[in-house]
């Protein structure tokens, strides 16, 4: 086994070169370069966590803004609804007033018309009495040859009309 057979003549060389090469590895690579590599990786990790946190915060802000928007939207809706209701009530009141005025006018017109009709029918009735009295006097004169007075004829007609 050369490891044991050669130990006397090689141990010093082995230890010397081992210390030299591993010293180079440790001091130049391990201490000189590895911390820089590690720092880069750490910086990247920190950046990723920072970016993620920022994104999370932005999400929260967006949610907040949306909630705010929703609240304002609801508020506006309520305000609009109230205005609308008020306007509706006002319009209804105005319409009611107008309707009442129109009703009154229509009623007065109907009253006037009825009065005119009443007057016309009375006039017509009077006309009929005169005509009937005239006719009654003619009938009396023709049948009996007696000239009935105007008043008597009129009374007779009135009585007949009253009895229907």
């Amino acid at each position: 086994m050369p490891q044991i057979a050669q130990i006397a003549e090689t141990y010093a060389s082995q230890i010397f070169w081992m210390l030299l090469t591993f010293g180079f590895v440790f001091f130049v690579i391990g201490l000189g370069m590895v911390p820089k590599v590690q720092a880069t990786a750490d910086a990247r990790d920190a950046k990723i966590t920072g970016d993620l946190d920022a994104a999370k915060a932005a999400f929260a802000r967006a949610d907040e803004a949306e909630a705010d928007y929703r609240a304002r939207d609801a508020e506006n809706r309520a305000a609009v609804q109230a205005t609308l209701a008020r306007a509706k009530a006002e319009a209804a009141k105005v319409a009611e007033g107008q309707l009442a005025a129109a009703d009154a006018e229509i009623a007065s017109r109907i009253g006037a018309a009825e009065a005119r009709i009443q007057a016309a029918s009375q006039a017509a009735m009077a006309e009929i009495e005169t005509v009937a009295a005239e006719a009654a006097r003619d009938m009396v004169a023709r049948i009996s040859g007696v000239q009935a007075s105007d008043e008597a004829a009129r009374n007779a007609v009135k009585a007949a009309l009253a009895h229907g």
């Binding site: 090689t10 010093a12 060389s13 082995q14 010397f16 070169w17 090469t21 591993f22 590895v25």
Partner: peptide, 19 residues
């Protein structure tokens, strides 16, 4: 004795490859 042996050569090679 610190002769540069084949063993030392591979130590140097490992260090250089790692570098």
């Amino acid at each position: 004795n610190i002769a540069f042996t084949n063993s030392a050569l591979y130590m140097v090679a490992a260090a250089v490859v790692l570098w």
